[in-house]
Design a protein around this nucleic acid. Structure first.
Lengths: 331, 331
DNA sequence: CAGCTTCTCTGGAACGTTCCAAGCGTGCGT
DNA sequence: ACGCACGCTTGGAACGTTCCAGAGAAGCTG
């Protein structure tokens, strides 16, 4: 039951514990005979280095903590994948903690990560106040992902939501649309920029922005769409704040007996996998998700390995993905 | 930069390190004055217990490792959520590691977990040979999730796929169907039991089983469905091996100009979130996903805290979720 | 007031590594 | 033959906790 330690291996191989340690870390610096003896002894005993002890003495764990708000959201899953891949590739491991939709659970998750002494922290879709996060940042490098900030203490990597919104509007205008409504998601992460990007783009085309309050959820999108249809002046195109909301809007439009895209064109945001399903086939704004994760890891490791101390902020442009929910307006 | 230790706190509070340690663990056993002094000193210094050091001396980490094959699969995300919730509730943390579709990366992920000395391991959708896993099981308790085994050394918690398949068939038969084809997914995890459950249920109803080879993917389902339609003798109902395959089948049926459910009824398996989307609205077999995760944690903790040593195998029954892709056959 | 228990607190050992200074041969140049 | 550098190896200290035996003080009992 008890696992063998470096001392057991040393005894069996007839060398000192220090030499065993060296074999594990830099085998080339040890003579052939000693190396063989140690490796064989380790093999026979089923020795496995204890990363806990190593972390204690080295005062670092080579673990990057990832705190994310919701595993169900495929967006986060993709980003997490990018993080894990990049971390492993550079000799680190990623430790995920999920499932807080409550801010309180988020605090606990972060606190746990800090107690475990992760070397760096990546926060995904966090709702926490930047000032609060900054207060932790003297203990370790922290990168905010999918969120913008000008913080001097925190790194960030996000998508240019304003540009994404502009691409959506430009696409619809180029198809001939003029009455384009935006369902906005209030102050939720990323929503304000999508909204202002929409407004700016509309004005650049000399069109009147029209906003309806919704949310980042299916039901939020459905409710907003109902409000739009009930409002009388029905637009020829709707730009939803994300794919879930677009899905909700789609349901409402379907239920009203209207056709997409003939009666109403619809654009989402995120390019979730389900947006590509033939029965959905949603035109949307795609984000380089795995790349976001990789960039975040890069930022953290720059602080860790290269010793960077000034904050960096990376913004990645999104791309328009045209599918079947957009077409020129009728007549 | 350097984080304060228990010694710094002790000095500031004018007590011994042991007392500080005690305050952190069992505050009620310390006098009011000492406790206050220690807590205040800790607060002022921004002290945070070092879980690495604690793990070393206690020889346990209170971390449960979760190795899963694919974060993108919403099924795994739900299960992982259940795991995390149950773990936190009982004073443990869950550490997720994902993203191996290659067996080699799976080995590495597990090895890493073992080096980090996680207290228990839950393996989700693993492809590894049971014998190989068993060899690791003397170091810590391991639970196989979503996979059946009779192992004496490994726990497992799975869903009764055979019963699920029977429910699908019974449902279709009760609607009046007789020509029911099953798209099977070969030897992929869970597929054989779904298939044999289907065959047994068909025979119990004196119906002729009919199998077509597909896969657990959208494209696999689409291809199998094409084969069925091209085969001439078109069935009135199709039972897919999972929701993705059902989705593929659905696309093929749509493309052929046939109606679901009027021409062909369709049943999936898994009850993914997307199966509930109005445009999909797939009848399917639901699995208690979060519950699977919780049960797995319970099994691991039984070994850890209660000292159980004999393997246990839990089988949870699935439930039929009727939506709009099934109806009585035409005529 | 002696002897006990109870409460509170303490110092040292232990956990399994890494790191460092130093020891020991051995071979080489002079 | 001497000094020196080099390759290989070693023991002890350190990392930041928890655990344990036990020290004092205080309170209780008869």
């Amino acid at each position: 039951m008890k696992q063998p330690t470096i001392l057991d291996v040393a005894e069996r191989a007839g060398v000192s514990k220090s030499l065993v340690s060296l074999v594990m870390r830099e085998p080339e610096r040890v003579s052939d005979t000693s190396r063989e003896a140690v490796l064989q002894a380790a093999q026979e005993l089923g020795y496995r280095p204890n990363a806990v002890a190593r972390s204690l003495v080295q005062r670092r764990t080579r673990v990057i903590g990832v705190v994310l708000s919701d595993l169900h959201n495929p967006f986060f899953a993709d980003v997490a994948d990018g993080i894990e891949e990049a971390a492993v590739q550079r000799g680190y491991r990623a430790m995920l903690s999920s499932g807080f939709l409550a801010p309180k659970r988020e605090r606990i998750a972060i606190e746990t990560m800090l107690e475990l002494r992760v070397d760096g922290l990546i926060m995904l879709g966090s709702m926490m106040k930047v000032a609060k996060i900054e207060r932790m940042a003297d203990a370790l490098p922290i990168t905010l992902l999918g969120r913008h900030t000008r913080s001097k203490a925190l790194d960030s990597v996000g998508v240019d939501d304003s540009a994404g919104a502009r691409q959506a509007v430009d696409h619809l205008v180029s198809l001939g649309h003029e009455k384009i409504v935006h369902i906005h998601a209030g102050t939720a992460a990323g929503a304000p920029r999508r909204r202002s990007g929409y407004e700016k783009a509309m004005r650049r085309h000399d069109l009147q922005p029209r906003l309806v309050k919704g949310a980042f959820t299916e039901s939020g999108g459905a409710a907003a769409m109902r409000e739009i249809l009930d409002g009388g002046d029905i637009p020829t195109a709707v730009f939803a704040p994300n794919d879930f909301a677009a899905l909700g809007a789609m349901e409402t439009i379907d239920a009203a007996g209207l056709d997409i895209p003939a009666d109403i064109s619809l654009v989402g945001y995120d390019d979730l996998a389900l947006a590509a399903l033939p029965r959905i086939s949603l035109t949307t704004i795609g984000q380089p998700r795995a790349d976001l994760g990789r960039q975040a890891v890069r930022l953290v490791l720059e602080c860790l390995d290269a010793g960077r101390t000034t904050a960096r902020h990376i913004v990645i442009p999104p791309t328009l993905v045209v599918r079947s929910t957009t077409a020129p307006p009728r007549s």
